[in-house]
Amino acid sequence: MDIPPEQSLITYPSDFPIKVMGTAVEGFEEAVVAVALQFDPGFHAGRVERRPSKGGNYLGLTLTVTATSRAQLDALYSALSSHPMVKVVL
């Protein structure tokens, strides 16, 4: 369902944080960044915040992407959620 721009809580374009969690394995962060680049070509790894779990088994990443539309964000969430290395997307 499309939300008319005047009813959206987001003004496009804008910086938009997305939290992604997965197992702390080699290649996880790179895989998530690769997905983000598909939807935000200007995204770079310097816009990733890392938070390892207390036990070090999981890694939480906050990606700040440039949101240009609701459709872009929906597609990005879908791609991240379906990635085999990703456990949760918020």
Score class of each variant (00 low, 15 high):
57 N>W: 12
89 V>K: 08
25 V>K: 13
18 I>V: 15
73 L>V: 15
64 T>H: 12
10 I>P: 00
90 L>E: 04
50 R>V: 05
59 L>Y: 13
58 Y>R: 15
33 V>G: 11
9 L>T: 03
89 V>H: 07
6 E>G: 01
22 G>A: 07
78 S>Y: 01
73 L>C: 09
21 M>I: 14
49 E>Y: 04
13 P>G: 01
69 S>T: 00
6 E>A: 13
81 S>N: 12
39 F>T: 06
84 P>L: 02
80 L>G: 12
81 S>A: 14
83 H>Y: 05
75 A>I: 03
9 L>E: 11
50 R>F: 09
20 V>Q: 04
44 H>S: 08
38 Q>F: 01
52 P>L: 09
41 P>F: 09
28 F>V: 00
64 T>Q: 10
75 A>C: 07
83 H>E: 03
60 G>T: 15
75 A>L: 10
39 F>V: 07
13 P>N: 02
71 A>W: 04
47 R>A: 11
12 Y>D: 02
15 D>G: 08
37 L>S: 06
17 P>A: 04
32 V>D: 07
72 Q>W: 13
39 F>R: 06
55 G>F: 05
82 S>F: 07
2 D>H: 08
24 A>M: 06
45 A>W: 04
66 T>S: 04
12 Y>V: 00
38 Q>I: 00
88 V>H: 14
11 T>V: 13
15 D>S: 10
82 S>E: 14
14 S>A: 14
84 P>H: 14
2 D>P: 02
21 M>P: 00
75 A>P: 06
62 T>P: 00
23 T>F: 13
57 N>V: 01
7 Q>M: 10
25 V>D: 07
29 E>D: 03
73 L>N: 05
70 R>T: 12
19 K>Q: 13
17 P>M: 05
14 S>G: 00
7 Q>I: 01
49 E>H: 07
49 E>N: 08
67 A>I: 03
18 I>R: 03
36 A>D: 06
10 I>C: 01
4 P>D: 05
65 V>M: 06
15 D>I: 01
58 Y>E: 12
8 S>D: 13
23 T>E: 15
73 L>A: 03
65 V>Y: 06
12 Y>K: 03
18 I>W: 05
57 N>T: 13
87 K>S: 09
47 R>Q: 12
52 P>E: 09
49 E>T: 08
19 K>T: 09
52 P>G: 04
83 H>F: 05
4 P>T: 04
18 I>K: 03
15 D>M: 06
67 A>H: 09
49 E>Q: 14
45 A>H: 10
39 F>C: 04
85 M>L: 15
84 P>N: 05
76 L>H: 05
8 S>K: 05
57 N>H: 15
85 M>W: 14
7 Q>H: 09
75 A>R: 15
75 A>S: 15
38 Q>V: 01
15 D>Y: 07
52 P>H: 08
13 P>F: 02
5 P>A: 13
18 I>M: 09
72 Q>S: 10
86 V>K: 12
5 P>N: 10
24 A>S: 14
33 V>P: 08
27 G>E: 11
71 A>H: 13
31 A>P: 02
10 I>V: 15
18 I>G: 02
82 S>V: 00
16 F>L: 11
80 L>I: 13
7 Q>Y: 09
